[in-house]
């Protein structure tokens, strides 16, 4: 342990502003990188879901019009 207290840790020997902004930006870049493919997968599945529902509705409508004839 290199620090005596939490305040000491946050201050980083007077360079706290620089050190913590680097770690914040670093984490942000990592998290954004992770989110892009995760959200992309959800989006693809949602798109596929929409297409499937459209197909199912069309099939249903065709079946109903077939019954009416």
């Amino acid at each position: 342990m290199q620090f005596d207290s939490l305040a000491d840790f946050m201050a980083m020997g007077g360079h706290g502003y620089y050190v913590w902004s680097v770690y914040a930006i670093g984490l942000a870049v990592l998290v954004i990188n992770l989110m892009v493919p995760l959200l992309g997968e959800r989006q693809l599945i949602a798109q596929a879901q929409k297409l499937r529902i459209r197909e199912l509705k069309r099939a249903q409508a065709e079946a109903e019009s077939g019954q009416q004839k």
């Binding site: 342990m1 290199q2 620090f3 980083m12 020997g13 007077g14 050190v19 680097v22 770690y23």
Partner: peptide
């Protein structure tokens, strides 16, 4: 961030290294 000893020239600011160098 917590356990590595501080640099004799740069003090605690050298901890930026642990993000900058890998990147």
């Amino acid at each position: 961030l917590v356990f590595a000893p501080q640099d004799y020239q740069q003090g605690q600011a050298f901890r930026i290294m642990y993000i900058h160098v890998p990147a």
